[in-house]
Amino acid sequence: MAADAEAIIAGLGGADNIIEVEPCITRLRTEVHDASKVDQAALKAAGAHGVMAAGNVVQVVVGPEADTIASDIEDIIG
């Protein structure tokens, strides 16, 4: 199941909370303004296999469709 871009944006605290989304082959490396707004359970419900947070860097493990999902997210948040 491909993870859902809209739901991942919501799980990251919304478009305004996202500074950057960079795809790796297995994950999205994201930087957020406020890590407390990140909802790990929501990200997993959105299709993430796992979430790793360190400070304001949140890695969302989505599998090899990461680059497609990252471009979907960028299209949405502009």
């Binding site: 297995t26 994950r27 790793m52 493990v61």
Partner: peptide, 9 residues
């Protein structure tokens, strides 16, 4: 790397 060591993918 936990993505791999925890077999997340």
């Amino acid at each position: 790397d936990p993505v791999f060591s925890q077999a997340m993918v």
